[in-house]
Design a protein around this nucleic acid. Structure first.
Length: 427
RNA sequence: GUGGGCGUAGCUCAGCUGGUAGAGCACUCGGUUGUGGUCCGAGAUGUCGCGGGUUCGAGCCCCGUCGUUCACCCCA
């Protein structure tokens, strides 16, 4: 009887060893700056009431209108796998009254998100993001800090071929007056049906059209930045000033368009140049009305989401992944039953003191075990046989050059700690 | 949702105008007593994605389907 193999669902990306080590590293590097800045973990469900997204993200967006994984649970409730992170954070903040405490609420999150799109390079139906949100305070310095944290994450990865683009979507008045002029401008253009439908949903989207003739046509379109109210303009100027003070490079892209409806004010995107069509590696911005829309008080927030999958692709493209980071320090090969027991005990002790230790299993021939040790990338190897057990002494072999030194088993921990720190200092 | 490319051993692929499958790498064992990376030798592995059709005969042609990949829409 042979059973058919079951495949992974379409569009999911799995990270298996050894690549998973790079993934784990990237995710940690991306979020570390947020932890250092006092943001705290918020662990949220991956599925939510569908209304959270239709109301929060906006029904007119592509994300909501055609990319959500929505299903009915056994109680007849409409449930959706989260397509982005901010709405869930806001829901939790409102539901648990976190906005009644000290502001801003500063949280980070990390996990899977889901969008039912056609898969493509760097675009998957299940993808990973890390993100932060800072809720309850309107201060351009906070905007600058949030951007700086995202930028630090990418710098932690060693990335160079990326660019930070910022703009401001202004306040409601700024957008309303710009919209009137933009619609007037667009009505003068000869648009095909599909495009003009898109314009009706959100005229700003036309700025993002990739067709050269559209780009050319939109060059003369009125720019939102020219319509900013005095206050919005001052805010945006301050954000730029702060970024410059922190020596964070950016360009102003007045034609930037974000896919989610809730953004207002400062908005930004990180774009990488080596990734093909899906070049956005992160983005975010301020959202003034979201909390109120979701039934909370009227507080503003700002946050970002960084794509872990794409950041990993970028790190691979720029060859910035560390290689030695992931391998063990020591590989123990026991020969015989007694040695096996002893090896387990020794390994436990060494691991407790921070020496990354692997064992050979399965009574393989010594040659095979040495091969396994070699492939593990371990920096040192010891063979534990009868003679070693009686002498309580092992030969510590350094794999890089094969040099062997004789060491008492009791001294193994000290010697290894010293040898490892010496060689890592000299790197 | 739309369009193009691709689907042959674990991996990367070859397979000429249709005649019932190969290479490299990886893997296992060995090159005499317990030491890896090089070298040499031996070995195992495929319903040629799946289903139909054309044909005396299909991995090669046709149709469908699934998957994959790239791009569009859109986005991390």
């Amino acid at each position: 009887m042979k059973f058919e193999k079951i495949q992974a669902p379409k569009g999911v990306r799995e990270y298996l060893p050894p690549e998973s080590q790079g993934f784990e590293w990237v995710r940690e590097q991306l979020i570390a700056p947020a932890k250092e800045a006092g943001y705290q973990l918020m662990e949220l469900p991956v599925f939510e009431d569908t209304n959270l997204f239709t109301r929060g993200v906006g029904e007119s967006t592509d994300v909501v209108s055609k990319e959500m994984y929505t299903f009915e649970d056994r109680g007849g409730r409409s449930i959706t796998l989260r397509p982005e992170g901010t709405a869930g954070v806001m829901r939790a903040v409102i539901e648990q009254n976190l906005d009644r405490g000290q502001l801003p609420v500063k949280v980070w999150y990390s996990g899977q998100f889901f969008r039912a799109e056609r898969p493509q390079a760097g675009r998957y139906r299940q993808f990973y993001q890390v993100g932060i949100e800072a809720i309850g305070i309107e201060d351009p310095a906070l905007d600058a800090e949030v951007i700086a944290i995202a930028d630090r994450g990418f710098k932690n990865l060693g990335l160079k071929n990326y660019q930070l683009e910022i703009t401001s979507l202004g306040d409601a008045q700024s957008r309303a007056s710009h919209r009137v002029d933009l619609l007037a401008f667009i009505s003068e253009l000869n648009l095909d049906e599909e495009t003009s439908n898109r314009a009706k949903i959100n005229p700003l989207r036309l700025f993002d059209d990739k067709r050269p003739e559209m780009q050319a046509a939109m060059l003369k379109a009125p720019i939102l930045l020219d319509y900013l109210s005095e206050e919005s303009a001052a805010n945006f100027a301050a954000v730029q000033r702060y970024l410059k003070a922190m020596r964070i490079d950016f360009t102003i892209n007045p034609r930037m368009v974000r896919g989610l409806d809730y953004y207002t004010g400062t908005t930004f995107e990180f774009v990488h140049s080596d990734l093909g069509a899906q070049s956005g590696i992160g983005g975010g911005g301020r959202y003034d009305g979201l909390m109120e829309t979701l039934g909370g008080q009227s507080l503003s927030g700002i946050g970002f989401g960084l794509g872990v999958d794409r950041a990993l692709l970028a790190a691979i493209a720029e060859s910035t992944l560390p290689s030695q980071e992931f391998s063990s320090d020591l590989f123990i090969i026991p020969l015989g039953e007694l040695a096996k027991e002893e090896a387990l005990v020794i390994a436990q002790g060494l691991r407790l003191s921070g020496v990354r230790t692997e064992l050979a299993f399965g009574d393989r021939a010594l040659k095979g075990a040495m091969k396994a040790a070699d492939k593990s990338g371990a920096r040192y190897v010891i063979v534990l046989g009868e003679s070693e057990l009686t002498a309580r002494t092992v030969e510590l072999k350094r794999m890089s050059d094969g040099v062997v030194t004789s060491i008492k088993i009791d001294q193994l921990q000290n010697e290894l700690s010293r040898a490892l720190s010496l060689s890592s200092n000299s790197q």
